[in-house]
Design a binder for these strands. Sequence first.
DNA 1: CAGTGGTCTAGACCACGAA
DNA 2: TCGTGGTCTAGACCACTGT
Lengths: 252, 252
Amino acid sequence: MGTTQLETVPEPKYWHLKTVLSEALDSEFSVGEILPNERDLAARFGVARATLRQALEQLELEGRLQRRRGVGTTVAPPRMGVAVGTEQHVWPGAAGDTWQPTDCTMTAPPNAVAAILETAVGEQVHTVRRSRVSQGQPVAAELLYVPESSVPGLPAVDAPSGAARARAVLRRLQGLSLEGQERAVELGSARAEDAKELDRLPGAPVLVVTTRFIAEARTAAVSVATYRADTCRLTFGDSGVEIHHGPERHAS
Amino acid sequence: MGTTQLETVPEPKYWHLKTVLSEALDSEFSVGEILPNERDLAARFGVARATLRQALEQLELEGRLQRRRGVGTTVAPPRMGVAVGTEQHVWPGAAGDTWQPTDCTMTAPPNAVAAILETAVGEQVHTVRRSRVSQGQPVAAELLYVPESSVPGLPAVDAPSGAARARAVLRRLQGLSLEGQERAVELGSARAEDAKELDRLPGAPVLVVTTRFIAEARTAAVSVATYRADTCRLTFGDSGVEIHHGPERHAS
DNA sequence: CAGTGGTCTAGACCACGAA
DNA sequence: TCGTGGTCTAGACCACTGT
């Protein structure tokens, strides 16, 4: 037989392409550097643009690249570690909190949240919007659902909505004794609303962190926070110590 | 003006399609039910197959669908909650552990892991392979890196590799007093090796959980676990209580 | 072997950002 | 206005699974 090597498992082109690009990123590019545009890259590798894009999409998903319409594709910095859980339980808005309250209205939460809160479907609750910025970049958008029963007697007249009211709700929450909290992390895609705040396109991959706050043996509040999956590594440290990883890349 | 509504922001077709399909899944399909094939669906909605696939990909990413080559597209059950962290710190392999050790060899860990372990680049460490099954389905594959210094004097002769040796390494680890552990969660794509074990294609989205085990003020071991992002919701509860959510869907 | 999803092509047009 | 990435099309062939 003259066959040198019968490809037992033909590797998809985009997969091989991703590997090649990934290695090139490590060795030949610096953080922030812009890559050639997609049409040129595709031509250079002798593939269709769609195939090249499949490789780029994966690299972006892994946080290696950042693509912006109208601008270009740049080499992304290593993912930033974002502290999500600490050993001690604290209410949102407590001292040292990195979230910025932006608004507060009364809305009917999604059914999934209503189920956790044990409120009736369609029942309105205080809904605090907060956003989180790290290293000058928006990294997360949060909706905090607080049923009326957790913050009774909140004056409804002054500051019916807005950041001021958000802070008022958070202050009321501090008064309760927090007995525990439970978290879940899952993959999701950004709703149009969140995408805008995170400076991404709708459908961008996000890590959804659902937190249940327990006080007086009840679910006192539920937070649904969506983090940019491309730029964030969620840390759940006992201490504040960072886990460093990812290949070291040179600063430009 | 005769224009009824000038589309200020033309919604992409695949995005609209995703919404329509998502609602159909809630109301007209049961878990496990198979959808029409992609060519038929695309024709029915009057779009190209590539466009339809873009919508299906998103729904699969969100855990709503499951697609298998040669079989078809089925409606996925709600994501299963998988406990990842508990309040008390335990070594891997402790009682009640849901992981199954499958193998153990000496390998040089990836540079990122070597950095955490503070071992020299290229230095070989014990590498325990474990897999985790939940509800009859593989949900995670793990590589646990244990430097020689954490388990000194492990007999090298009997059982040089395999599950037996894996258990031996884990037993040795139990002897150390665990002082703390730190976790990080980020999005990744499955390496070919892990993909096979998770019954997915290479590049499938996974949640990568990196855990650093601390004993005697040192990093005694590092675990890198990759969870199927489509089927898993990682829970970090204080108690074992489940967070239920996701729209209720009917069993077939 | 038939039918499924996965990969790939070579185009086209659109939305956005910067100059 | 121009160049970028984002969307979309209408095909083709391949790899896998079941029968």
